[in-house]
Nucleic acid binder design. Structure first.
Lengths: 110, 110
DNA sequence: TGCTATACCTAAGAATCTTACATATAATTG
DNA sequence: CAATTATATGTAAGATTCTTAGGTATAGCA
């Protein structure tokens, strides 16, 4: 399991990228997808995930729709056009960060 | 400039790695070295750096020596043997984290 | 003389998580 | 069929880890 401290500041990027790749997802589905893709290395906690989803919706980055599955409800999230821009920006930001880190961690490859 | 939120959880790794590569450094020197190596992309603030150095010293990861340069004093830090182990651990942890992130961000390369 | 660089440090507050709850339906297992 | 686990959403208190904003002092330069 990845040290959860390293995830700080990156959870939003993860959520946005998954929504870019999958059009529409609900919260629980996001937690499972992250686990699957990362071979259990990254596990989102609900206490972190739901507040991020609500914040992004409030910012106009995501829109929602409620689906009824039997007697249970799911809340599906999808990116708005502004959301699409935000994904690109966040992923680029992450890559610049990783490259900069590698200038320190692998000075011989710099 | 790298979004400082992304640095969260990685400042200790940066400091430890620099000390592995340079035997002995003082605080201000660390801030300058990080700026130089990353072409100004990463800039450590003193408010973050000094508490980390003090914490690592308290944990036995670093030892210190005071040098007098004219009327000015410098506090040099160097790794203890436990410190050397910690660097390896932290750098490895970071690389696992980056690989896991890439499983999400570049699913086609996974 | 005043500004910038060097050099150390602390403390209040902000941001962003984790942990621990609370609620409820559906599926599986002993 | 009762109990446990999985599915599904959410909130709130507290912890961690920064940023921001200060404080102190020497050295160099314009």
């Amino acid at each position: 399991m990845v040290n959860s401290k390293l995830l700080r500041g990156n959870l939003e990027t993860i959520v946005l990228k998954l929504l870019e790749d999958h059009m529409e997802m609900y919260g629980y589905e996001i937690t499972q997808k992250v686990k699957d893709l990362t071979l259990n290395e990254i596990q989102l906690t609900e206490g972190a995930l739901y507040p991020i989803l609500h914040k992004l919706e409030g910012e106009g980055i995501l829109t929602t729709r409620i689906a009824n599955i039997g007697n249970r409800k799911r809340k599906y999230y999808k990116l708005t056009p502004e959301g699409n821009d935000r994904v690109t920006q966040k992923v680029d930001e992450f890559e610049v960060f990783v490259q900069s880190m590698h200038l320190i961690l692998n000075p011989k490859l710099g």
